[in-house]
């Protein structure tokens, strides 16, 4: 929109500004000012060319303006500003990431509260404890949901002083009295000495009236039988 006259002025001003990243913003700001002034003169009756010449003249000395602007757009400070900006942005991202992670584990901690009460068909509190070598596993609870999903809750810890950090991947085969074998999804939450765990079987047989957890590996064995409320459930349904 502006003619070479304004361009010459702007280019001269900007030639003194060494921090090139700011040049574009400065140009836009000064350009805006000149074009406002041109409109002003034209409203007063000037021809476009005259209006522009007067407007540029009113701006003052390009060299003086450029030198003063350069003092305010110092390259060293400019770079420090840009770099601290980038670092700050990265730190914020990292912070958010850490927050998100801790939120995630916060939710996992309350494994037993994940199931809304309305969906629970029944819950059996159990006190079964078994020991394999130094590891003590306590089964605490079985929850049967309306959907047929069965969850087994347990905690475990190591009785020995060493090996506290070993995690437990496998606690045994999940069976029922009907001869079905189940593949369970597991979740765990490390909580200091005692670790909470949960096994979930998506579609547990409604006919079964006993849940069996059977472990037989490396010459170690245990078998737990937990009576379920299958009979009543069938009647209700």
């Amino acid at each position: 929109m502006l003619s070479p006259k304004s361009e010459v002025f702007l280019n001269e001003v900007l030639s003194y500004v060494k921090f090139t990243f700011d040049r574009n913003d400065i140009r836009k700001e000064l350009e805006g000012h000149i074009s406002d002034k041109i409109e002003y003169y034209m409203e007063l009756g000037s021809e476009p060319e005259e209006a522009e010449q007067l407007s540029v003249q009113d701006m003052g000395d390009a060299r003086e303006i450029g030198i003063e602007l350069n003092k305010q757009h110092n390259p060293v400070l400019g770079w420090i500003w840009r770099i601290t900006g980038i670092i700050a942005a990265l730190l914020i991202l990292l912070f958010l990431f850490v927050i998100a992670m801790s939120m995630g584990s916060f939710f996992q901690k309350d494994l037993s509260k994940e199931t809304p009460k309305a969906d629970i068909l029944y819950q059996i509190d159990i006190k079964e404890q078994i020991r394999i070598d130094d590891r003590i596993i306590r089964f605490t609870k079985v929850i049967m949901e309306e959907s047929g999903e069965l969850s087994i809750f347990y905690t475990y810890h190591n009785a020995g002083l060493l090996g506290g950090s070993w995690s437990l991947g496998y606690i045994g085969e999940i069976l029922d009295d009907q001869g079905n074998k189940y593949v369970a999804m597991s979740g765990q939450q490390q909580g200091g000495i005692i670790t909470k765990g949960m096994l979930t079987i998506p579609d547990f047989s409604r006919d079964a009236d006993t849940l069996i957890i059977s472990y037989d590996s490396y010459n170690r064995k245990y078998r737990i039988e937990i009576p379920l409320e299958a009979g009543e459930t069938d009647e209700q349904n």
Binding site: L30, G32, K37, M59
Partner: peptide
């Protein structure tokens, strides 16, 4: 910026004839 110049002129009853471009280094 442009508004600032206009107001300065009006308020000062056009006492000051500004070299308008010099406003920007000050603003910055």
């Amino acid at each position: 910026g442009y508004e600032i110049i206009r107001r300065l002129e009006q308020r000062s009853d056009n006492t000051f004839k500004f070299r308008e471009g010099t406003l920007y280094p000050v603003l910055h």
